[in-house]
């Protein structure tokens, strides 16, 4: 691990999971400074034609982590929304390890889906149907806390 780096290692190197599954891994860091805290966040974000949205599902805080260290973590994934890609919108889940008050951060994309594969609808449905899915998704995400997020 290089100085000034952060890393997230998931158990068995898995990156695709079923909804509500428990996931575990190790957060590692080797920093030049001594941060007050590090935060591991599970969040979704949209990518596509419209304005980006994002929401945090869970955050684990590591207080006084020291400049070099690692912590094992586990968390329960939410029931949805599923990882999805259409022509208009993609829903992407990420784990992010970041300094609580700093600019250093690393992200790892994961898939959350019953099939453990991203649901792809680029050819199967029309734009208007996809718009309907997008609206349902936005209603669904109302269950989560929306917040501004570093990207």
């Amino acid at each position: 691990m290089k100085m000034g780096s952060l890393d997230i290692k998931l158990s068995d190197n898995r990156t695709a999971f079923k909804p509500c599954e428990k996931i575990s891994g190790r957060a590692e860091w080797q920093l030049e400074n001594n941060p007050e805290a590090l935060e591991l966040s599970l969040f979704w974000q949209t990518e596509g034609k419209g304005t980006k949205d994002s929401g945090i599902a869970e955050t684990i805080r590591f207080d006084n982590p020291g400049s070099v260290g690692s912590r094992i973590f586990s968390l329960r994934l939410p029931s949805g929304p599923y990882s999805f890609s259409g022509k208009l919108i993609s829903i992407i889940w990420n784990l992010e390890l970041a300094e609580a008050k700093g600019k250093d951060a690393i992200q790892k994309s994961i898939i959350i889906s019953p099939t453990e594969k991203e649901i792809v609808c680029t050819d199967l449905i029309s734009d208007s149907e996809e718009e309907g899915h997008k609206n349902s998704f936005l209603k669904f995400t109302g269950k989560f806390k929306f917040s501004s997020h570093r990207f």
């Binding site: 990518e47 890609s85 993609s90 992407i92 990207f151």
Partner: peptide
């Protein structure tokens, strides 16, 4: 093309 791969997605143009 998937929205996430589109080079002209809002995330990319805003960056």
């Amino acid at each position: 093309m998937k929205a996430r791969d589109n080079p002209f997605s809002a995330g990319r143009t805003e960056s």
